[in-house]
Design a protein around this nucleic acid. Structure first.
Lengths: 339, 339
DNA sequence: GACTGGCACTCGAAATCCAGGAGTGCCAAC
DNA sequence: GTTGGCACTCCTGGATTTCGAGTGCCAGTC
């Protein structure tokens, strides 16, 4: 049904439309790409492509634009992910290398991603579940207020405030600190919950209610899904979306405000090196039917810690964007693996 | 030069223009506000106001719109800050009360502010300089990599990674931890720098290079101006700016990407309860000449910890916005004072 | 059978034109 | 000082027209 030339035509249409953002007609197509055939032939092919649902016309007697299905075919079969130039790679790694802590890594990554893709970038903070406990700290703020600080192997720091009904002796705080550290350090967060359960029993009955309150708070911190956070950047790139402000820009801006939606957009963390591309209506969030998401997991070699990606108009430059996302994910993973 | 009625006219013009976003003419003005005079009289007054530079016409034979000077006069002399309803106050305090830690307070505040003002909200994280040290923690991540964690009285947690050229003995880490805590705990961060200077001398010469590296890192963390961070929210409210996308929305989005610019916009932390209003060209950032900033400090009674505020179009509802900003600042201050 | 040139047709975008009307400034009268 | 009246300005919105890129189809060619 679709011979090679028709696919060539589709590829040309996508590339042209991405470059110009204007419906592309048969004549301009043969002018710009050397397809070796006449406009009339291209028109026949276009009619076929339209029948198959890969392209469409905004109105009769206008050029064609790719449909979501067209882009899908393009990324699946008609394009290869572009690799970055050596200079760009250099720039990425040196920019990331300057980070002082995990938060800074995330901030820099989101900025970098926004800059090189010229799209809106989203980076999820590494999840707690897959990392392990490096250290637990208990600090007395006031006699009735304790601060729990949890430091994970990925360098992430979680804090929780615990209010008590009675004054807490400094002695007990010290005991707790050492007990928690000996039982927790090195444990994966996923396992920590079960390990913690037994801790209160090791303390005298008088202290148990406090200890179990603390254990509860810690478990909360370990398992808190709501605490899955993301950073966004490059919102200014929305300006380049085109003119249909209300339809293209507003929904994206609104989505960016909602962590939950962003997490859903990024999707499950895929194994590193596997790119997820969701085009237009393929998105789980229907208001963003005119935008695409390119995402991938990052983290250690074997399993993903979290996800990062970009959102942009469906008519984006997929090969370059995918290359950039993949490259950034790679460098961040490497950086985190070294830590 | 400007009698009471002329000021009434100016007030009416501002209020009308803010409500409708359309140039307001003499006839509609007397229709909507009962000024007790005829359109012709109003026209004379308008001519005078225009001579004085408080209003202007977009083109001949159109209504008038306020100039920046007009808004300035309005906020200074013609309006009173609106207080919130009891229900709104209730909502604010209960929403803020749910915060689990300092970061969460800031996130909730920015969200709240954006929601009730329906503008873009900016909240600066409490500065380190005016708080004191609660605790310092040193954690070994790998033999050659230490993690320094600094916990301040405001609940803020700063982390720094320190790379060393040689392996560090666990013994030394313990010594350092206790030494740092005894010397630093309770110190104001502003003073901490001087106190720290003497620490290396207390250690044997062999360890001194490491200790001073650590001290340097800590001092950096204490004084790091670059680390002054801000949170933004409500970017989706930019949609309501009107249609001149390129001129109104783009520069704001770009400014939001730059922490430095945002900090400059918020300005010096004013004493709490004092509102700063910068209208149009009064802004330090010339690209935002069509937007206004309403900001105020928050923190303890006597001195401001940091600044929060909103940016919006010059034609905003100043009395309500100012009231909302002031109220939110008040509640956050209260919350932080309790901690 | 596939490709091509030719041609009539379609239809949106941009330019042009044309009221309609809101608003103004000015003046004479109260 | 205020007001009604009036001529004038000029933007806004709708209707009309033109222009041209693009299409589909058909007959002819290789």
């Amino acid at each position: 049904m679709l011979d090679d030339r028709k696919l060539d035509v589709l590829r040309a249409i996508v590339e042209d439309y991405v470059a110009t953002h204007e419906p592309v007609g048969s004549k301009t197509l043969v002018d710009r790409h050397n397809l070796g055939v006449s406009p009339a032939t291209v028109r026949n092919d276009m009619a076929a492509l339209e029948d198959e649902g890969y392209i469409t016309q905004p109105h009769t007697s206008a050029g064609r634009i790719p449909t979501d299905a067209g882009y899908r075919l393009f990324v699946d079969r008609l394009s290869t992910v572009k690799t970055l130039s050596a200079a760009e790679k250099k720039a990425i790694s040196s920019f990331l290398a300057g980070a002082v802590d995990l938060d800074d890594v995330v901030r820099r990554t989101v900025r970098l991603l926004a800059q090189i893709t010229r799209q809106v970038a989203i980076v999820q903070y590494p999840t707690l579940a897959r990392s392990s406990v490096r250290h637990v700290e208990v600090v007395t703020m006031t006699p009735r207020r304790l601060l729990l600080v949890l430091i994970t192997s990925t360098g992430r720091v979680e804090q929780r405030i615990l209010e008590t009904t009675e004054d807490v002796a400094e002695q007990l705080v010290g005991d707790l600190r050492s007990r928690l550290n000996t039982t927790l350090t090195g444990q994966r967060l996923a396992d920590a919950t079960t390990v913690l359960a037994g801790v209160p029993d090791a303390f005298p009955p008088a202290d148990r209610s406090l200890v179990s309150a603390m254990v509860t708070t810690l478990i909360e911190a370990f398992t808190d899904e709501g605490e899955q956070r993301v950073a966004v950047g490059g919102a200014a790139n929305l300006t380049r979306y085109g003119d249909d402000f209300e339809r293209n820009v507003k929904p994206v801006l609104e989505a960016l405000e909602e962590q939950v939606i962003l997490l859903k957009l990024l999707g499950e963390a895929t194994y590193p090196q596997t790119l997820t591309v969701r085009i237009g209506h393929e998105n789980p969030y229907e208001e963003l039917a005119t935008t695409s998401v390119v995402a991938t997991g990052y983290g250690s070699k074997s399993e993903a810690l979290a996800t990062l990606g970009i959102v942009g108009p469906t008519h984006m430059d997929y090969p370059s964007t995918m290359g950039a996302v993949r490259a950034v994910a790679r460098y961040v993973s490497q950086l985190l693996a070294d830590s």
